[in-house]
Structure formats: C-alpha cells, structure tokens
C-alpha cells in the first residue's frame, strides 16, 4: 500500500534519514521504535508531506505522496504534542478540519463519544488539559476513516482508560483494513498492537520484522524481551 525507497534527509550536516526503503500493506499495525532523535518522527513526517526529503520516493499505491497533496485525503494524523489556538472552541476545531474534506460526510465519531468529547464541545481549547487536547487530536485522526493512520506516541499523555479505548479503536481499524503507523517507546504497546516492528537508529533501518519472526528468532515468549535482545544485537545499548 505504501512504498518507500531510497529516502534520504539531512538537516544541515546531520543525516536524519539514510537511504530508507520500506514496503507496507494494509490491515497492519506498524510500530516504529528507536532512541530519541533516531529519525522516527522525520520518517512519518515524510509520509505526511511535512518534511520534504532530499532524495527518494514515497508512494501510496501508484500516487506520489510527496507531490500530490490529495493523497492526504486518505491519511489521518495524530501529532505528539499539540497546542491548539486558545480562543477557539473545540467544536470549531472539528469544523475547521472537516472543512478541508468538504465532500466527506460519513464521519467516524466513535472516539468523540467514547472519550466524552461530545460533552465539552463548547469549551475553548485554551481551557483544556494536555490529556484532553490529546484526546481531541486522536479523535481528529480517525474522523475521516482514513486508510493510513499516523500516530505519534498516541498514548503517552492519556489516562489508562482513554488509552485502552484508543488501542481498541486501533485494533478495529486494523480489522477494517487500515494501515497504522505508531511511534512509541512503550514496549507493552508494541506487544499489544504491533504486527510489524521497524527499528531505526541514526536514520538507518536496523530491522523491519514481523512480531512472529522476532519471537521465533530470539526464542522469547514476550515481545519486549525479544526486542530488547534484538536491539542489543543491533548496537543499541
């Protein structure tokens, strides 16, 4: 579904993405892991058109994601930390985002309700807590039933209940056939959700394996421990 090849990006002298080529198909949850500053966020920003790579190809089926902004019709994005305009009501934020896809009608408002956002629609964004803002950004990502979801550390600021609801939603979308990218440092999240794991260090892909393969190779029953072994073997202390 998504095809990346020969992707390179550097900021000044620092190489952030070093010749990355990857292939993803629908109905999978992909966890991107790696130390801070390894290039996870830059990679997913390339998918979103937020970072423009120096070289390489990013394709969605046959369309060039780097050139064709209409590709983003099929992408839902949940950023890591988000400051909203403070004077704007939550309702207006949803309306604003909806306005970019004005011909889309069949909204997925499941998260809005299950996270209780429908009860506080009139509140100004400036009055909300960090967690609630994150709920809003989660709800926004799923609103248009996207076939590609990009979630940057989705549960990091959420309470356990909300976190669980979000994970359930991710599983549901996988059932529907969506391709989901999650960056995370949380191994239990990987354990619960991941079909495949991409491990990046210093802008290079160290491995891209399915969870089953990792367990088989390491002989560990728990994915966390298996990953830890693999990571150590790949030069990450």
């Amino acid at each position: 579904m998504i095809h990346i090849s020969g992707l390179n990006k550097s900021f000044g002298k620092q190489t952030v993405l070093n010749d990355i080529s990857l292939e993803f198909s629908g109905g999978k949850v992909i966890c991107l892991i790696g130390p801070n500053g390894s290039g996870k966020t830059t990679l997913i920003k390339c998918l979103l058109g937020l970072v423009i790579p120096d070289r390489g190809i990013v394709k969605m089926d046959t369309r060039d994601m780097l050139k064709d902004w209409t590709c983003r019709n099929a992408v839902g994005y949940m950023p890591q930390i988000l400051r909203f305009p403070e004077q704007i009501r939550m309702k207006s934020v949803f309306e604003l985002i909806k306005d970019f896809r004005s011909d889309f009608q069949n909204y997925d408002e499941e998260l809005i309700e299950s996270l209780g956002l429908n009860l506080i629609m009139q509140k100004k964004m400036g009055t909300l807590s960090g967690g609630t803002r994150q709920k809003v950004s989660a709800a926004l990502a799923f609103l248009f039933r996207p076939s590609v979801l990009v979630l940057d550390e989705p549960t990091s600021g959420l309470d356990p209940v909300a976190s669980e609801k979000l994970k359930n939603k991710i599983r549901k979308e996988r059932q529907r056939g969506a391709l989901t990218f999650i960056t995370t440092h949380n191994m239990s999240e990987v354990e619960e959700l991941a079909d495949n794991v991409v491990f990046i260090v210093d802008g290079k892909i160290r491995f891209y394996k399915s969870v089953d393969t990792i367990m088989n190779e390491t002989g560990e029953m728990k994915i966390g421990r298996g990953l830890a072994k693999l990571m150590e073997a790949n030069g990450y202390a």
Partner: peptide, 16 residues
C-alpha cells in the same frame, strides 16, 4: 511560532 504546532496539523490535511 505559537501556532506552529497547529499549523503542522493543518498541513497534514489535504490542502496545499
């Protein structure tokens, strides 16, 4: 600068 994060979210939408 204060709107930059929100602008980022907007830019991830299908719009030039």
């Amino acid at each position: 600068y204060n709107s930059l994060e929100f602008i980022e979210l907007l830019l991830a939408q299908p719009v030039p």
